[in-house]
C-alpha cells in the first residue's frame, strides 16, 4: 500500500500528509505539550521563533501554535460532521428523488434550486442569525454557536450534494442493467443499494471533498463577519481577531490563514483527483 502511495503525484502526497497532520492535531490535542490555547501569558505579541512560543503570541498574549492546534479540532469537527450529515441527507434525497421521479422529484428539484439560488454564505448567515438568536438578546454560548453553525452548514450542504446525487442517479437509472434488474422484480431499495449507490458514489465523493473546502471557508468568513465562533477558538476566529493587528503581529493572521488555505487546497485536490479518475473510468465505458 505504501508502495502505491509513493507512486502517486506530488500533490496527492502533500495533501495526504497535511490532512493526516490536521487530523492528528484534532484528535490528540489534549496530549500535546505546550501552553493552553485559552490562557494568556505575559508575552504579548512576541514574534514567531521566541522561546516557548514557536509561532509567537497574539497581542493578547495567547500562544498562536496552541490556538492553531485547538482550531484544528473545531475545523475538523465542523467540517466533518456537517459534510457527513448534510451529504448523507442530501444524497439520500437526491437518489430517491431521481429514482422514484414523479411529484416528489419535482418538489425536491424546486427546493434544491431555490436553496442553491441563495449564495451559500448568505444562506448560512441567514440561518445562523435566526437559529442563534435568543429571546432576550443575550449572545448565545459558544457550544450553542458551534451547534447552530453545524446545523446551518448541514442545510447548506444538503442541496449541493443532493443535486449531484440526483443528476448522477438520473444518468445511471436508465442504464440497461438497472432496467433489467427492475424487470426481474428486485426491490427498489435493493437496486438503489446494489446498483445506484456504488455507481454514483465517486461523483458524490468528489463533490463531498469540495464541500469540506466550502465549509471551512464559510466558517472563516462567518468569523470575519463577527457572527461565527468567538474568542479565537477556531482558525477563522483567530484571524478575525488577528486582522486588527495585521500591521503589528501579522503572524496572528497568517498562521491561521495558511492552515485554512492548505486544508482547502488539500481537500480540493482530493476532489479533483477523484473526479479526474472518474472521467477516466467513464471514458473507458
Amino acid at each position: 500500500m505504501l508502495n502505491r502511495f509513493w507512486k502517486k503525484p506530488l500533490g496527492f502526497k502533500l495533501s495526504t500528509v497535511w490532512i493526516i497532520f490536521i487530523l492528528f492535531l484534532a484528535i490528540f490535542r489534549d496530549l500535546l505539550p505546550g501552553p493552553a490555547w485559552d490562557e494568556s501569558t505575559e508575552a504579548l505579541g512576541v514574534s514567531p521563533g521566541s522561546p516557548g512560543h514557536f509561532f509567537g503570541t497574539t497581542q493578547d498574549g495567547f500562544d498562536v501554535l496552541a490556538g492553531i492546534i485547538n482550531g484544528a479540532r473545531l475545523s475538523v469537527l465542523v467540517a466533518v460532521t456537517s459534510v457527513l450529515i448534510g451529504g448523507g441527507i442530501g444524497t439520500f434525497i437526491g437518489i430517491t428523488a431521481a429514482y422514484f421521479k414523479g411529484k416528489y422529484d419535482k418538489v425536491v428539484n424546486v427546493v434544491f434550486n431555490m436553496m442553491l439560488s441563495i449564495p451559500n454564505l448568505v444562506l448560512s448567515l441567514a440561518l445562523i442569525s435566526v437559529l442563534a438568536a435568543t429571546k432576550d438578546g443575550i449572545p448565545a454560548s459558544d457550544s450553542r454557536k458551534v451547534f447552530v453553525m453545524i446545523i446551518s452548514l448541514i442545510i447548506v450542504i444538503i442541496p449541493i450534494l443532493g443535486r449531484i446525487a440526483r443528476s448522477a442517479t438520473l444518468q445511471w437509472s436508465t442504464r440497461e442493467f438497472i432496467i433489467a434488474s427492475k424487470s426481474m422484480g428486485t426491490k427498489d431499495m435493493t437496486i438503489i443499494k446494489k446498483h445506484i449507490v456504488p455507481n454514483v458514489a465517486p461523483a458524490i465523493l468528489a463533490i463531498g471533498f469540495f464541500a469540506i473546502g466550502v465549509v471551512i471557508i464559510v466558517e472563516g468568513s462567518l468569523s470575519i463577519l463577527g457572527i461565527g465562533i468567538a474568542g479565537g477558538a477556531s482558525w477563522g476566529s483567530m484571524l478575525a481577531i488577528g486582522r486588527s493587528y495585521l500591521e503589528f503581529s501579522p503572524w496572528e493572521t497568517y498562521f491561521p490563514v495558511a492552515c485554512i488555505a492548505f486544508t482547502v487546497l488539500s481537500t480540493n485536490y482530493f476532489g479533483d483527483y477523484v473526479r479526474a479518475n472518474l472521467d477516466k473510468r467513464e471514458s473507458k465505458i
Binding site: G11, R243, Y254, V264
Partner: peptide, 21 residues
Amino acid sequence: FVLSSIPSFALALVFSLFFAL
C-alpha cells in the same frame, strides 16, 4: 490549482498587509 483553492479573504489579508501596510 493552488490559486483557485485559496479563499479570497486570505488573499485580501495578505494583499493588505503588503500593499497597504
